[in-house]
Each structure stands twice: as structure tokens, then as C-alpha cells.
Amino acid sequence: MNLPVLTNAHSADRLIEIVSARLALAGVVDFRSPPAHPTGCCGRGCNGCVWEGYFSALAYWRDEALLRLGGIDPGGEVMAN
């Protein structure tokens, strides 16, 4: 499964779309929703920007979803499905 690298809102939305579709296809209906986009970014490139936290939270959501789907090996590598 080719997943986008989290670099901006578009890549985050695409990741959510792909992973959510895989969960639905697998019949997983009780998995939690992905984190919501941040709303408090000032756009100044702060160290510790809210987007950095969002990308970390979204990566955790992605990893948990892939574990649920059986798509991550114990070393953390995404396996092709």
C-alpha cells in the first residue's frame, strides 16, 4: 500500500482517505476517527507548530489502523497489501 508522506494538509487528507477506505473495505467499523485538522496555526513557521503535532497524531492513527488491518510488521515497516 503506497501511503503519502505527511507534508501538508492535502497529503494528510489523502492519507485519511486511503486508510479509511481500507478500513471500510476490511469491514472495520469500530475504529476511531482520525484527528481533526488544527485550527490555530499562525502561519509563521513556529518551532513546535500545531501542524507538527497534528502530523504526529495522524501518523499514530495511521499506524494503529495499519496494525488493525495487519499491514505493519513488528519492526514498524509498512507491508505491501
Rank of each mutant, 00 (worst) to 15 (best):
Met1Ser: 02
Asn2Gly: 12
Leu3Asn: 05
Leu3Cys: 05
Leu3Tyr: 06
Val5Asp: 12
Leu6Arg: 03
Leu6Met: 09
Thr7Cys: 08
Thr7Lys: 12
Ala9Ile: 06
Ala9Asp: 11
Ala9Phe: 05
His10Met: 11
Ser11Ile: 10
Ala12Trp: 03
Ala12Gln: 09
Arg14Met: 14
Arg14Glu: 14
Leu15Phe: 06
Leu15Lys: 03
Ile16Leu: 11
Ile16Val: 15
Ile18Pro: 02
Val19Arg: 02
Val19Pro: 00
Val19Cys: 04
Ser20Val: 00
Ala21Val: 10
Ala21Thr: 08
Ala21Gly: 07
Arg22Glu: 13
Arg22Ile: 06
Arg22Gln: 13
Arg22Thr: 05
Arg22Asn: 12
Arg22Ala: 08
Ala24Leu: 09
Ala24Pro: 00
Leu25Arg: 09
Ala26Arg: 04
Ala26Met: 04
Ala26Asp: 03
Gly27Phe: 14
Val28Ser: 03
Asp30Asn: 02
Asp30Thr: 04
Phe31Ser: 00
Arg32Asp: 00
Arg32Glu: 01
Ser33Phe: 05
Pro34Glu: 01
Pro35Thr: 03
His37Gly: 03
Pro38Ser: 05
Thr39Gly: 08
Gly40Ala: 12
Cys41Phe: 10
Cys41Glu: 11
Cys42Trp: 02
Cys42Leu: 09
Gly43Leu: 08
Arg44Ala: 07
Arg44Ser: 08
Gly45Met: 13
Gly48Asn: 05
Gly48Gln: 07
Cys49Asn: 04
Val50Asn: 07
Trp51Asp: 00
Trp51Pro: 00
Trp51Glu: 01
Gly53Thr: 07
Gly53Trp: 09
Gly53Val: 06
Ser56Tyr: 10
Ser56Asp: 12
Ala57Phe: 02
Ala57Met: 00
Leu58Ser: 03
Ala59His: 09
Ala59Leu: 10
Ala59Lys: 12
Tyr60His: 13
Trp61Phe: 04
Trp61Tyr: 04
Arg62Gln: 13
Arg62Lys: 11
Asp63Arg: 15
Asp63Ser: 14
Glu64Asp: 14
Glu64Val: 09
Glu64Arg: 15
Ala65Cys: 13
Ala65Gly: 08
Ala65Arg: 01
Leu67Tyr: 08
Arg68Ile: 10
Gly70Cys: 15
Gly70Asn: 15
Gly71Gln: 09
Ile72Tyr: 09
Pro74Tyr: 14
Gly75Val: 12
Gly75Ile: 07
Gly75Glu: 13
Val78Asn: 07
Met79Gly: 08
Met79Cys: 12
Asn81Glu: 11
